[in-house]
Computed example of a mutant assay.
Amino acid sequence: MGSGGIRRRLALGAAVLAASGALAFTATATAQAASADGCAGREVRTLPFRTGVIHVYKRGDYVCAVTVARNAGSVQSMSVSVQARGNRPVVDKGRYKHLAGPVTVNAGHRCVWIRGAVGAYSRSSGWILC
């Protein structure tokens, strides 16, 4: 193999390496589009209450919510639900240390009702994102 063949192989190898690096960068950026709480999309509402906060995200027709406890660490009763108008709510309820959810629904262009609770305190949004 002459020096031209070696150069072509080195150039091909460099191109493959550059492409794989670009792909890894794109995959990392896509993964960062998901929140630290597990919901994809952009945060559209924050619903604070005494013992926690509900974070609401929207991506296309999907709405996602999580309830995060203000004082994480001890196991406590927590819940989050998302209900698209005309459907039943999707609920995550249990005893958690830090957060309940994520809960995602396909809302389309319908309003949603978000509820969340930590311990004895809760928050309800009413119909939003109409």
Rank of each mutant, 00 (worst) to 15 (best):
R85T: 08
V16I: 12
R7A: 10
V66R: 02
D37W: 12
G94C: 07
G108Y: 10
M1W: 15
H55L: 03
A36T: 12
A65Q: 09
R115F: 14
A29F: 02
S35G: 12
G108C: 04
R88G: 15
G86Y: 08
G60Q: 04
A29Y: 03
G126S: 00
S79N: 06
V16Y: 07
Y57P: 04
A84K: 07
R88M: 13
Q32T: 10
G60R: 02
A31Y: 00
S124G: 15
Y96S: 01
W127C: 05
R7K: 11
V53L: 01
S3Y: 08
R123I: 03
G5E: 15
A117T: 00
G116V: 01
V91Y: 07
L23F: 04
V68R: 13
L99H: 11
V105K: 07
H98C: 08
R45K: 10
N106L: 10
M78E: 12
P102M: 08
Q83L: 09
I6N: 09
G126K: 03
H109K: 11
A24W: 00
G52C: 04
W127I: 02
G13T: 07
R45C: 01
G108N: 09
T26F: 13
V63I: 05
Q83A: 10
A84C: 06
N87L: 14
S124F: 11
A22W: 06
V75H: 11
R9L: 15
A31S: 06
A18G: 09
S35A: 10
S20A: 14
W127Q: 04
A117D: 02
G119F: 12
S81T: 08
A117V: 01
